[in-house]
Computed example of a mutant assay.
Amino acid sequence: MSDKFGNASHDKSKEVANAINELLYEVGLRCYSGDEVKNRFEIGIIGYGKDSKVGSGWEGNLSNKWVVSIKNIFEHPLGNEDDKPIWITPIASGSTPMKQAFDNAKRLTQDWINWGNHRECHPPIIINITDGEATDAGNNYQDLINEVNQLKQLRTNYGLVNILNIHISGKNADRVLFPNEVSHLNNKFSKLLFDMSTHLNENMVRIALQKGYNIPNNAKGYIYNGNAVDLINFLNIGTPQ
């Protein structure tokens, strides 16, 4: 995440932090009713890579929390940049324990679904952002595959969990956006991320089309070599409107 993001003046970690902060801000604005933010979303941020560990990505007053309501998120920003609140700052270090991160996501998702009336809610959406290959995936990636397949089986009464992946890169060419097949890719791990991704639902397709993407039948929530704009759009496409 320390490499430059395409032609951007700063690195990938900064672009990722900017995109996540922007998404949190937009989600919160959608939840305003009068002067109050209604608890219409609950969001977790899992960071992986720093010191080869997996942990909560929240900072400041939200540090060490896992799933936080949008109301509490808006009550505890880390600070402000460009007259907008921010909640996370860029971090780029360590390895890529992706299997461990998905195991963490699975346990959080299970707990969330089994709490209160969440089985009557929209199924959770897992958005994985990475610029490198998993370092704990096991032989032929099987450990990672098994973890993701277990996560894919979790569901609420309104459907199965959604898993979206974006493989960001410093390259400006060979962008692959929401494909339905990736036989042309020579990168084995990129093909794995495609396989790990679930298909876009009708609402995601609608938003993607509105943003100008060409969406084929049976498109998956996957981007390869996306740029900074794709990253921001990807997060919005993956979030219920």
Rank of each mutant, 00 (worst) to 15 (best):
D3E: 14
G6D: 05
N7M: 15
H10L: 06
D11H: 02
S13D: 01
K14R: 08
E22G: 06
L23E: 06
L24I: 15
L24N: 05
L24A: 04
V27F: 06
G28D: 04
L29Y: 03
Y32N: 01
Y32L: 05
S33I: 09
D35A: 09
D35N: 05
V37C: 03
V37P: 00
K38I: 15
K38M: 13
F41S: 14
G44A: 14
G44F: 03
K50D: 15
D51V: 02
D51W: 01
D51H: 01
S52M: 07
S52C: 09
K53N: 10
G55E: 11
G55P: 15
G60M: 08
N61G: 08
N61W: 11
L62Q: 03
S63F: 03
S63N: 03
I70T: 13
N72A: 01
I73S: 01
F74T: 04
H76C: 10
P77R: 02
L78D: 04
N80D: 13
E81C: 01
K84G: 00
P85A: 00
W87M: 00
T89S: 12
T89F: 08
P90F: 00
I91R: 12
A92Y: 01
S93D: 12
M98S: 12
Q100I: 12
F102A: 14
N104V: 14
A105L: 04
L108P: 07
T109E: 10
Q110S: 08
I113N: 01
I113K: 04
I113L: 01
H118I: 02
E120M: 08
E120G: 14
H122N: 07
H122F: 08
I126D: 02
I127R: 02
T130V: 01
E133F: 02
E133V: 05
E133A: 11
E133R: 04
A134N: 08
A134L: 12
A134K: 09
G138H: 03
N139K: 05
Y141T: 10
Y141D: 14
Q142P: 02
Q142T: 14
Q142G: 13
I145M: 11
I145A: 10
V148F: 03
Q150C: 12
L151A: 01
Q153M: 10
L154D: 06
L154V: 03
R155K: 05
R155V: 00
N157Y: 07
V161P: 00
N162K: 11
N165P: 15
H167D: 13
H167C: 15
I168C: 08
N172Y: 14
F178S: 15
N180F: 07
E181L: 09
S183F: 12
N186S: 13
N187R: 00
K188D: 07
L192H: 03
L193N: 06
S197Y: 02
T198R: 00
T198F: 02
H199E: 15
N201L: 05
N201M: 05
N201T: 06
E202T: 10
E202D: 11
M204H: 10
V205R: 07
R206I: 13
I207A: 04
G212V: 09
N214K: 15
N214F: 15
N214I: 15
I215E: 07
I215M: 04
P216E: 09
K220F: 03
Y222C: 06
Y224D: 11
G226E: 13
N227I: 13
D230W: 11
D230L: 12
D230E: 09
D230I: 14
L231D: 08
I232Y: 04
N233Y: 13
N236S: 06
I237S: 09
G238W: 03
Q241L: 08
